[in-house]
Nucleic acid binder design. Sequence first.
DNA 1: AGATACTTGACTAAGTGGATCATGTTTATA
DNA 2: TATAAACATGATCCACTTAGTCAAGTATCT
Lengths: 140, 140
Amino acid sequence: MISARVHYACLAMLELASRSSEEAPISLREISDQHGVPGPFLVQIFRSLRAAGWVQSVRGSQGGYRLLVRPEDVSLLEIAETMGYQDSGNPSTGKTTAAEMMLQEVWEEMSRASREILSSVRLSDLAERFHRGEASMFYI
Amino acid sequence: MISARVHYACLAMLELASRSSEEAPISLREISDQHGVPGPFLVQIFRSLRAAGWVQSVRGSQGGYRLLVRPEDVSLLEIAETMGYQDSGNPSTGKTTAAEMMLQEVWEEMSRASREILSSVRLSDLAERFHRGEASMFYI
DNA sequence: AGATACTTGACTAAGTGGATCATGTTTATA
DNA sequence: TATAAACATGATCCACTTAGTCAAGTATCT
């Protein structure tokens, strides 16, 4: 359902968001150390994040990455989609029998519900709670 | 999210359920022809369904499969789980940082929502609509 | 100049899902 | 009783994705 790639990307974006007040860019090394994400894998992930325009890279010594967007403008769904979340749809036999179509509706409803949850959580929501030290109590 | 394996299994169970009034068992050939599921793959699927106790096999000529449970006692979630739906949990770095735990909650909420939908649809619900010729309008 | 850090591209390794094949066993029926 | 229909079982295979690695290069600060 959620891949490690998406999970790591969200962790990284959350790290950037929660430290967006800092002047200096944040290096992959810091993120890797902080969250236990394999370094070389982070490189790949940031290539996608950069291509999507979410982050800006700063090369050279003291370089790293900086958030290019406001945390309140990014949802987890957008990050997940950038990382290839659900680019393949639901299974289908290709036939249009009643049974087939009924099941399709159920799968579709599931996808819709998942996307709804992902899109309802913005980076700023998480970063805010992060700073307050609240680790729980999202859903009422 | 939903694998072809689960999709095929649900189609097959739906076929058995909608024809559960018939005396003769239903052969894999019929299901394969009706729904366009690759024959040899159906064999595998029914091995799991049989092991789970959902169906009964009748060997020999004129053999096939028969439903062993009442359609109103089986939800799509149960079928999906029999076919290995989500036996691997959500990704995790293993760390217990605030960021990690917050994301875990979101992934957890997604799983919960999907399972909720799957468990709310019983085989009898679909079979009933199947007989009435209604192919749409599940959710109000 | 040298250390730090991102860039790019190719590459590997493992796992999974989808699908197939061969061979055997059971049973109805002509 | 022979034969065909149909399930039973086990092995195997291929394609694809995911996770992770490596190496050579470029930019920048000190």
